[in-house]
């Protein structure tokens, strides 16, 4: 994956939060992941197949997801299932929007959700893996992209 392709995802993240919540996310400088583990309390994963192969995931703290869901649903009454669903929908939208730039052969799976941040988890990604940190309402999250 090229650096130019990484910038596609930064644009998608900014647009997502602006359209969805009315408040733009601040995207930090993307970097290449080394050995460190990038996983927060909720994670949504999308498998990529077709012309390109790999995985895209977004990982965030539950508090951020609660805040996004509150804005979207205009309610404070949120159960745990809805909050977890939010991370899956985030992953789905970010990967789905990327199709516009990568072409119709960029096929995305339905999202898988990881609840919690287990120490021994290993997510297989195609190298190099790019980490895109971003902030929304002062809360930090990451989009991690590893596609060949």
């Amino acid at each position: 994956m090229t650096e130019q392709e990484v910038s596609v995802f930064t644009g998608i993240i900014e647009n997502y939060f602006e359209e969805f919540t009315g408040k733009k996310a601040v995207v930090d400088k993307p970097y290449i992941k080394e050995e460190e583990k990038i996983i927060l309390s909720c994670t949504g994963l999308i498998g990529i197949s077709g012309k390109r192969k790999g995985t895209i995931y977004i990982t965030a703290h539950r508090e951020m997801l609660v805040d996004i869901a509150k804005v979207f649903l205009k309610t404070d009454e949120l159960d745990d299932e809805i909050v977890l669903d939010m991370i899956g929908e985030l992953a789905n939208t970010i990967a789905g929007n990327a199709k516009q730039h990568f072409g119709s052969d960029f096929l995305i799976s339905i999202p898988s959700i990881i609840d919690g941040a287990p120490n021994d988890i290993r997510i297989k990604l195609e190298l190099p893996v790019y980490v895109i940190p971003f902030f929304w309402k002062g809360q930090k999250a990451f989009v991690v992209v590893g596609i060949e």
């Binding site: 939208t93 199709k99 516009q100």
Partner: peptide, 9 residues
């Protein structure tokens, strides 16, 4: 109503 925002879809 979809995340697949490409023209083809």
């Amino acid at each position: 109503v979809t995340a697949l925002s490409d023209e083809g879809t």
